[in-house]
Amino acid sequence: MVPEIAKEKIDVYYKVEDKKPSSTIYMLTSKGYDNFMKPETDAEAVQNTINFLNLFVKDATAFLLNDQIDKQNDIISDIEKKAKNASKDAASLAKDKTKLESKISDNAIEAGTLKNEMENEQKALELVKTKTATIDQVDALKKEVSKQETKTRKANKHYDNAVSDGAGYKEDLAKKIKDIDDNQTEQATIKNDLEAAKRKLEDLKSQLNGIK
């Protein structure tokens, strides 16, 4: 029984035709089998069906708005997840930046020490090269020079490695700073998206309240 249409028991046949972007409902009412109600014999039921479909626009609009609200809540949930991830990334990037800054500071101290060592070894080499020797001391002097050359080469290499490491850390820091900038831009975009999505949700809820 559909009280809005008829007091007696009836069958309601309906078909919804898609007429993008609109749609049309065809509704037939029957007292049983193919005994369809006609305006000539069932004027009140037919008029009630017309009224039913006229009022049904509110139900359809509410259904549409509820569907849109559900989808909008999903969108907000997705944006909030993105915001959470971006915030986590920001914390991780800040940590990485601090680590790199610490590495750069340690490296600068190490490079200073190694530079001193390198200069000292260089001076020692120059000194050993100025030494003179008798014929029977030549071999020993050559050995001493060779030993000092090896020490100087090693000291040079250690210093060069430290300088190279320092340059690498500085490059990494520049990349990290860029990542932090990008992350801040991303967070600002996400914040705007979230605010817009929440405004849209409020608008939909307001529309829904308007038809209740």
Binding site: V16, S23, A60
Partner: peptide, 19 residues
């Protein structure tokens, strides 16, 4: 057969779901 028809500016799946 005689029927009552109504057109809504809402998509068919929403109208059918609401009905």
């Amino acid at each position: 057969q005689p029927c009552v028809k109504a057109t809504y500016s809402i998509s068919a799946d929403m109208v059918e779901g609401a009905l």
